[in-house]
Design a protein around this nucleic acid. Sequence first.
DNA 1: GCAAATCCTTACTTTTTGGTCAAGATTGAA
DNA 2: TTCAATCTTGACCAAAAAGTAAGGATTTGC
Lengths: 160, 160
Amino acid sequence: MKISAQEEYGLRCLVQLANLKDGETLTLPQIAEREGISTANAGKLMWLLNKAGFVNSTRGTKGGYFLARPAQEIFLNEIIKVLDEDVLSSHCESYTGILDKCIHTGDCGIRPVIVGLHEIVENALSRITLAGLVGNEEAVDAMFHQIQGIHRTIQPQKIV
Amino acid sequence: MKISAQEEYGLRCLVQLANLKDGETLTLPQIAEREGISTANAGKLMWLLNKAGFVNSTRGTKGGYFLARPAQEIFLNEIIKVLDEDVLSSHCESYTGILDKCIHTGDCGIRPVIVGLHEIVENALSRITLAGLVGNEEAVDAMFHQIQGIHRTIQPQKIV
DNA sequence: GCAAATCCTTACTTTTTGGTCAAGATTGAA
DNA sequence: TTCAATCTTGACCAAAAAGTAAGGATTTGC
């Protein structure tokens, strides 16, 4: 269970836009440079996010991308849903092995756990807005743990 | 963020073994049939799980697979770690774009969220044992929500 | 000792995901 | 009006994940 490349980079691009002051925009090369990805890749991601209604763009000289809505109103679960398809509602249609349908229709001991896990993640993400990701690492970390009400039971990772 | 095929099928195969009575075993074709996957695929999964010490096997006629430890002592987070690599400790080494290192070293607003998410999942899985997945769907669902202390905030999925 | 049943291991193929490229369309400014 | 900067789009290529195949090794039972 992990974050896909599209989720990771897409989120990061949006955070760049969330950092902008009102009226400012970023071009593809700027976004690409700030995230260390290729311009082509940034282009594809922004196209997705544009289609999904998270960003708007203007073409031509002085053009660029900007958030379509205030960062305070964009929740991470909406973003993830777009960047990685909505997996919560389709689990039993994937993983059908060599059959047309999952063999465990009717009664399945795995489903509650998998679906429950996805719910937990969805739930956690639905409490965080893009605006919450703006700021330094310490502040974001505090925000996250305060919102989730988590006491660390796992060793914090080494900060690189 | 989703469960990989290997995680899903690997877990399901282990649940089959957890269902066995003491002394019983399952062969690869049996496991494959019960999970609706090919024998070759089941073979690969069981090889992985064997290497990781979750199952043991005996060869020859009357051979088969069985759990190496009691199902009550095998926690899901251990299983997932084997089936999908330990992602929690390596996030910043992936997703470096076209660079050698992630561009956000030092101070990163995304990291706490991604790492925090992985922690939440790890945490949830570390409270559930394989034995908890044995039984009918309703019972497993109750176990899951009781352990996680969750009140559903999301509509339950349609049961297929 | 031999044959059948079974697991073991490596290499290969297919599918999915991730990423790149190039041509086209739009806009702003000289 | 023309050019340069920019986004848009679809086709293409590469890497990773998933799945398959086949030959080898081990054990049991006759």
